[in-house]
Every structure is written in structure tokens, then in C-alpha cells.
Simulated scan of single mutants.
Amino acid sequence: MRKQEPTDTSGDNDYGVPIPGNVLPETSWAKTAIKRLPPEGPLDFAAIFGRIAPVVLDLGCGNGRFTITSALKRPEIDHIATDILPMVIRYATRRANQRGLFNTRWVVSGAYELLDLYIAPQSVQEIHLYHPQPYHDTKESYKRLITPEFMTMVYRSLRPDGLLVIQTDNKPYWQYVQKVLPGIFDWKEQKSAWPDAPQGRTRREIYARNHGLPIYRGYGSPLAGFDAPALEKWASSQPLPRFATSGR
């Protein structure tokens, strides 16, 4: 029987930038879909992945570029990627399966619901949030993900030495992040492209760069000393994201 060679995936790209990795022989494919979340309660990462390892969450993962890239470069780390759109999760799952990325799982879920119902306190090493929907119509501002309440859920989910990454190409959204996040995170702005992905970590980032849009990036770790009552007090003192998003 002729040996099956990896398939060239040069045609699998975002605006001309290839999705990393090759399609492996089918015998090496993974099964990475979480087709149905269990009853409410903390996910058992060790049972899901069959090992104990740091866990990265990619919230609103889109077509999966960041998670696929990170999983290929960091096989020692497990990744859970979510999006509310079943179609994009199907495409991302297929790509991960064909690349043999056993250290990834893909699930249709909202970011808020995942953190609220399924993530145990201080159980996640990294949370990545790339280009959350800004909802330009101010009547829909209540749908914006980044709120003080949501940030307390992110804080609660991360390990004390964990990492939060946020990126957007919407200036008013970024200004809101810069105003609110330093209250509970040691927050830093990433002035230039991410060194690991100079062409872009996500499809949206590549699109924005191609169209000359500014991109705003930041990262931080939880500040010490915030228990549940302190987080609730902080959240109640912060403004909601009711800004207009017309400016960039």
C-alpha cells in the first residue's frame, strides 16, 4: 500500500495568508468537536483531553486561525475554542481534525455562557478575545461582550499567573478597554504586531491590516487581592459600554 503523504494546504488561507499546518494522512486525524456541552457545571479538562495541562480559551474564535496556530506551536498546552456560529465551528473543527490537533476542542457556545456555566475558578491559563463584535448601532450596545460583569468572570476563571489578551480594530471599544481593564488587571498595550504572527493572529486582523485599519492590542494578568465581594464592588463602580463606535 502506497504511503500517504501530507497534503499541501497552500490554498487554505485568509486573504492570501495560509492557515498553518498540513492535512495529515486520514489515519492521523483527530476528533476535536465537543458536539454537546454537558449539564451545567465545571468542565473536567483532564477528562476532555486525557491529560493534565494548561488550558487556553479562545472566545469568539471565528475560523480558528489563532487556536490552530497556537496548538501547532504549543503542543504541551490544551485549547478550547468557542463561537456562537455553528458554521465557522464546523470549518475550524475540520481544519483541526485534519491537522491532528488532539490538543484542541471546538464548541458552539457564547463566551459569556461558557465562563458563567462551565469554567471553574482559577482553572484557565489564558483567555484570548480577538475582535469582539462592537455593535455599531448604539441601541444594541447591551449586546457588547466586554462589560465589567464579564471581566469579573474572566478574572475569576484565570489562574493568578494567567493571561488575558484582547484585540480590536474599533478605537472607541479599545478606549473603553483601556479605561476599565487596569482596575483588575496588570494591563499593558502591545504597540506592534504579535511577534509570533506578524501577518496577523486572526482572519479579521489580516483583513484590517490589508485595509489600513489601526489595530489595538493588549494583555495582562489578574491583579492580586480581589475576592468575589471586591470584584462585585469594582464592577458596580464601572461604566457600561454604551459608547458610540463611529470613530476608529
Rank of each mutant, 00 (worst) to 15 (best):
Q167M: 12
L115K: 03
P42G: 08
S246C: 04
Y118F: 10
A53V: 06
T93F: 00
K35A: 08
R95H: 05
A197H: 04
Q190R: 10
W187F: 13
L181S: 09
R36N: 13
L181M: 06
W187L: 00
K73W: 00
D169A: 12
I84K: 08
I215M: 02
K3M: 13
L57Y: 06
L101N: 01
Y207D: 12
V154C: 15
I77P: 01
D116E: 15
S221E: 15
R204E: 08
P195G: 03
F49Q: 03
M87I: 07
L37W: 04
A30D: 08
Y155I: 05
R242E: 11
W234R: 08
P182F: 02
L37T: 01
E76L: 01
A228L: 13
P39S: 15
T168E: 06
L164N: 01
D169F: 05
C61K: 04
A208H: 09
L115G: 02
G11E: 15
T32R: 07
A228V: 14
A53Y: 08
A193Q: 15
L72H: 00
T245M: 15
W194S: 04
G50M: 12
V124P: 09
Q199W: 11
T245S: 13
S123Y: 07
N63D: 09
M87S: 12
Y130I: 07
G247I: 02
I52F: 09
P20E: 11
A111E: 09
P54D: 08
L163W: 07
M153R: 15
K143G: 03
A208M: 06
S28C: 08
W194V: 08
R90Y: 04
Y142T: 10
L223N: 05
L85G: 02
R51W: 09
Q4W: 11
Q125A: 14
R144Q: 01
Q122W: 00
I127M: 07
L72Q: 06
F45N: 10
L231D: 04
A208L: 13
F243W: 10
L72D: 03
R94D: 11
G183C: 00
K3I: 15
T32H: 02
P39T: 11
G41L: 09
R51Q: 14
S157I: 00
G183P: 06
Y155W: 12
S221W: 03
G200D: 12
L231K: 11
Q133K: 04
P38T: 12
I119A: 05
N97S: 08
E205W: 13
A30G: 10
R242I: 00
L145N: 02
P75M: 14
K31R: 14
T202F: 07
V108L: 07
D12P: 01
R201G: 05
K3V: 15
N13R: 15
I206N: 02
T104V: 00
K188N: 14
P195V: 02
T93G: 00
F226S: 07
G110Y: 03
L101E: 02
R95I: 03
G162T: 03
P198A: 01
A230F: 09
V107Y: 04
Q98M: 11
S192C: 06
I215F: 07
H79E: 06
G162R: 05
F49Y: 13
A81W: 01
G21P: 05
Q122I: 03
I215W: 02
E140H: 13
N97A: 04
K191L: 10
A81S: 13
E113M: 02
P42Y: 13
F150K: 05
S141V: 04
K191R: 10
N13Y: 14
N63C: 10
P6I: 14
L129H: 04
I52K: 15
